[in-house]
């Protein structure tokens, strides 16, 4: 299974190789979607892939190391009332989460494919895309 989480950590935790431990000790595939770090700590958005049990244990490991863990169901949201279905977002989306449905002429947003990179946010002329993390 796959799970997206937002991690908040203190500067101390930033010195622990937490992603490496998730990979080696908890057998998870880790995809880093966003990472920011400064003097007051850091934030990271990860997509974890592995057995449900391993993911649970991995998250417990993070919590025991003082890392704030918040699971997210969605990283980017589209406001369907605002979207004009122009499609400008399609060619800049690196994961093809935005695609064109030739039959309806609409732009389809497939959330499962979205890695919340945020490249679509300021590319959308009517500003229909919002990043939640």
């Amino acid at each position: 299974m796959k799970s997206k989480v937002v991690l908040n950590f203190s500067p101390e935790a930033a010195n622990t190789p937490i992603t490496n431990n998730l990979i080696t000790k908890h057998h998870l595939l880790v995809n880093i979607l966003r990472a920011e770090i400064d003097e007051i700590g850091g934030k990271m958005v990860l997509e974890l892939q592995g057995k449900a049990d391993d993911i649970r244990k991995g998250l417990d490991y993070l919590k025991s190391n003082g890392v704030g863990v918040r699971p997210i169901k969605e990283g980017v949201r589209r406001d369907d009332d605002v979207c004009t279905h122009c499609g400008i977002c399609i060619s800049i989306c690196p994961t093809k989460a935005l695609s064109f449905d030739a039959k309806t002429g609409k732009v389809i947003f497939t959330e499962e494919k979205c890695v919340a990179c945020g490249v679509c946010i300021d590319a959308c002329p009517p500003r229909a895309m919002e990043i939640l993390i």
Binding site: T84, H85, C86, G87, I88, I90, S91, F100, T104, P125
Partner: peptide
């Protein structure tokens, strides 16, 4: 959705809404 430009397959998209 794709066009050959300078020897590369480039993703294309529209600013004009076909739906509308």
């Amino acid at each position: 959705g794709e066009a050959a430009i300078k020897g590369k397959q480039v993703a294309t998209s529209s600013l004009s809404s076909l739906y509308k």
